[in-house]
């Protein structure tokens, strides 16, 4: 109860500050639209080679995960600014739960992701995507878990490094393999075997597969199962890490 209240106070504060920044709102809305309109048409002629039926049923889930992961990776940057102005310390000196201080911030990132998901799915349908409501719901849920994990990790990284200059290269270094090995844009199955083996070690790839499978309607399959397991594991680990940094945040 207290936890919900505390995290909601933090969330409301974050949201208020973000909404004051129109760029945040506009870019957040435009991202899914642009990806879908400018990248989707490139995939349409290739779709047979992927072993998929419908370009948008294939592409929308990938986009969803991409927005979840990449938007969330940058969530930590605003935390550094707050830390510098003593905001984190002021929050940490209140009796509020350390996890609530983190999770309140995640709500904001998850809300942003949810709005983007709605736009993406609506637009996907408009462009000819075929998917069931349950499949979409489950897929979005998996994406939210993964996005929450990435945002929590980004916050933890921000509080550990306390410097944009240190954090930016680290984020870039993480993003590269994620983008290349998780099959967000193109499926890993079309590559050579060694590349596909390598991608097996990328947890996010399994979440992408899971989201795709659930959009297609294969809700009981192993792809959804493993995607769900990985999303949960990553989420739990990241929350634990983030809470730990809020707890000690030593400076």
């Amino acid at each position: 109860m207290t936890f919900m209240r505390e995290s909601f106070i933090v969330f409301r504060r974050q949201l208020r500050m973000n909404l004051r920044n129109p760029a945040w709102v506009i870019i957040g809305m435009l991202q899914p639209v642009l990806y879908l309109l400018l990248f989707g048409p490139l995939l349409e002629p290739l779709i047979d080679q992927f072993g998929a039926q419908n370009a948008y049923t294939f592409f929308v889930p990938g986009m969803l995960v991409q927005l979840g992961v990449f938007g969330a990776f940058f969530a930590g940057f605003s935390l550094i600014g707050e830390w510098r102005e003593g905001v984190i310390e002021a929050e940490r000196v209140t009796p509020a739960s350390r996890t609530a201080l983190l999770v309140g911030r995640l709500y904001r990132d998850l809300l942003q992701l949810l709005v983007q998901a709605v736009i993406l799915v609506a637009l996907g349908f408009a462009l000819g995507m075929v998917a069931s409501a349950e499949g979409i719901l489950l897929g979005v849920l998996l994406t939210l878990l993964l996005g929450g994990a990435c945002a929590a990790a980004s916050n933890a990284l921000a509080l550990s490094t306390k410097s944009e200059d240190v954090m930016a290269p680290v984020i870039n270094m993480v993003m590269m393999p994620v983008l290349l090995l998780s099959g967000i844009l193109l499926p890993m199955t079309i590559g050579p075997a060694w590349l596909e083996r390598a991608s097996d070690f990328m947890p996010i790839r399994h979440v992408v597969d899971g989201v795709r499978a659930s959009f297609v309607g294969d809700l009981g399959g192993s792809a959804v199962l493993w995607g769900g397991v990985w999303a949960l594991v990553l989420f739990a680990l990241a929350i634990w890490w983030g809470t730990a940094t809020f707890r000690k945040e030593n400076a």
């Binding site: 004051r20 707050e82 510098r84 102005e85 003593g86 905001v87 000196v93």
Partner: peptide, 14 residues
């Protein structure tokens, strides 16, 4: 307790 840190505590843009 109340604590007013060296850096303050109110965000400049809120």
């Amino acid at each position: 307790i109340g604590y007013v840190s060296q850096a303050g505590g109110a965000f400049s843009g809120a």
